[in-house]
Design a binder for these strands. Structure first.
Lengths: 129, 129
DNA sequence: CTAAACCTTACAGTCTCTGGAAGGTCAAGC
DNA sequence: GCTTGACCTTCCAGAGACTGTAAGGTTTAG
């Protein structure tokens, strides 16, 4: 299977698959006689796994760890759970930060009459903190 | 005033001030005889404005627009409000996305007993979607 | 035979800085 | 006058995670 089909079936763009290979997230693909990368069904599954992990916000480095854990049939599920829990913590932190920003912005916009007069509490807020 | 004091008083690192000048977010600083950048009080206020806007998640490009609006005493407050409201929408979108990720991860981790056995619903979830 | 749809590599750009190297300037202390 | 250390300068590289583009080779359909 060529890179195009794998891209289509895994949802990971061909360009990105080459990039993952380059940074060592996936091993170098076997090459056909013409120099094209050649893939098997298993590679699609790996890329799907990567795709889902990335969609859940894991960094590429974390995905590397998850792949290792996935390949290691002897791993303890506790290791995976720990990684996932750390990630949840991080996401909750980001949500809290965004929520605080949202509240501040809402407050500023509620104070702003938003008409054609130049007086603007939003800019004043940004200027004076 | 040299760049170091301005950095200290505005909270924007010297390195970042030079970067903002380079990309045209702020005008090139006046130079002293020795070639050092020379600043006035007003520049600190501008950098503080930028700093606060960035902390509220506005992109550098948006900050550029906000600075223009800030300088334009004739601007309509509606223009500023529109920009802020768009930004709030974007932030709410990001929060919703993170919250959905959080829910999925919580579900997966709750299913995972997290002990020393290899069986792991988190990895299974990532593999099979 | 040609055109399109593939594939290849290599390099640049995105965004927002941050770090480092190599060197010039200034103020204080001896 | 000299040294030391804290400033300042420019330029280049790297981060993360791709994405776009250029320039070219290969394969397939008509």
């Amino acid at each position: 299977m060529n890179i195009g089909s794998v891209a289509e079936h895994s949802g990971v763009p061909a360009k990105t698959i080459r990039y993952y290979e380059e940074i060592g997230l996936i091993p170098p693909a076997v090459r056909s006689d013409n120099g094209y990368r050649s893939y098997r069904q298993k590679d699609i599954e790996i890329l799907r796994f990567i795709q889902r992990s990335r969609k859940l916000g894991f960094s590429v480095k974390d995905v590397g760890n998850l792949l290792q854990l996935w390949n290691d049939t002897e791993r303890a599920s506790a290791d995976v759970k720990a990684l996932a829990l750390r990630h949840i913590d991080e996401i909750e932190g980001r949500i809290a930060e965004l929520d605080s920003i949202r509240k501040t912005l809402l407050h500023l916009t509620e104070c702003c009459h938003g008409d054609d007069r130049p007086d603007c509490p939003i800019l004043d807020g940004l200027a004076k903190g």
